[in-house]
């Protein structure tokens, strides 16, 4: 059992948790993730490790309520425990001194960008970040990203805060201004990652994206998370989650991520109407 020792609401339905997991806290590096299962009847879901505190033995995760499992997680409070937390999984981010690194985070995707921005800064890079959200209320980790970057740019789709528009427009401006970018890290919804890759492709700027396919075990034994990268099948959980953004088959990833739309909706309805609060505590008979 893995106890929740801190919980904070970052935005509407977006929560940050600190979870007691000393071994993972000691081992994890930027770019890695955990798979967790809330209870005996639960499913296994992947979430990025946003940070860790080796002394306190905790890891930090951020989750948005988008379906049954994350909604159940959203109902959990400090003192509650998660049944299973496995990690650290996936390959750590390749960190080196690229000169200038532009870190781009879209929506909840800012959470996985944060540890990478920190590590890139520590490695001596000049870190310029662009984070965006649909509106001001959905923007997360502004202060943390400001601290992890030399320069922070904010965009909102509706113009309620920062630059009015998309993160890619700011990135394009940097390129147009002649900024010598060594590497771009772009993480967010799949269409946003594809858009970032499309901006950098003509200039051959190295671009790293972190993929979010469906996962089951997260240790390479099933291939649920397979995605075509540069024409070859790769398992995101063991070969990634980070890949060259210019080689990813984004259409396929989006199609695969829709595989269980019907079932996800049914599970959420069942949960909303029949199970109610505290259902994460259920146990099988």
């Amino acid at each position: 059992m893995y106890e929740i020792v801190e919980k904070a609401e970052l935005a509407h339905t977006v929560y940050q948790y600190k979870i007691k997991a000393p071994l993972i806290a000691k081992k994890r590096r930027a770019g890695q993730f955990v798979v967790l299962r809330l209870n005996e009847m639960g499913e296994r879901i992947p979430l990025t490790i946003v940070g860790s505190d080796d002394k306190a033995g905790t890891i930090t995760i951020i989750a948005q309520e988008v379906g049954k499992s994350t909604a159940m997680l959203g109902d959990m409070v400090v003192g509650d425990s998660i049944l299973d937390v496995v990690g650290p999984l996936g390959k750590p981010t390749h960190i080196e001194d690229f000169g200038i690194v532009v870190c781009v985070g879209g929506g909840i995707g800012t959470a996985p960008v944060l540890p990478i921005a920190k590590a890139m800064k520590e490695a001596g890079n000049k870190v310029i970040s662009i984070i965006g959200a649909r509106n001001k209320g959905l923007l997360i980790l502004e202060n943390e990203m400001r601290e992890a970057s030399h320069e922070l740019n904010i965009t909102t789709d509706d113009g309620s805060y920062g630059h009015h528009g998309f993160v890619t427009q700011v990135l394009q401006n940097f390129i147009d201004e002649g900024m010598k970018i060594g590497c771009v890290v772009g993480i967010g919804p799949v269409p946003m990652m594809r858009a970032v890759a499309n901006v950098t492709r003509p200039y051959k700027i190295q671009t790293v994206v972190s993929l979010n396919p469906i996962m089951v075990d997260g240790t390479g034994m099933c291939g649920a998370c397979r995605v075509t990268i540069g024409g070859k099948n790769q398992f995101v959980c063991v070969d990634g989650p980070e890949f060259n953004g210019h080689e990813v088959d984004y259409d396929e990833l989006m199609m695969r991520n829709r595989s269980y739309i019907k079932e996800e909706k049914a599970a959420m309805e069942e949960f909303t109407y029949h199970e109610g609060a505290k259902c994460y505590e259920r146990e099988c008979k």
């Binding site: 009847m41 499913e43 089951v216 079932e263 996800e264 599970a267 069942e270």
Partner: peptide, 21 residues
């Protein structure tokens, strides 16, 4: 492996009582 893991280990045959589809 994926099919059997979903059905046996995660008990997807009892979906939606169990969460894995």
């Amino acid at each position: 492996n994926e099919y059997l893991t979903r059905v046996n280990l995660m008990k997807a045959y009892q979906f939606p009582e169990y969460d894995t589809p």
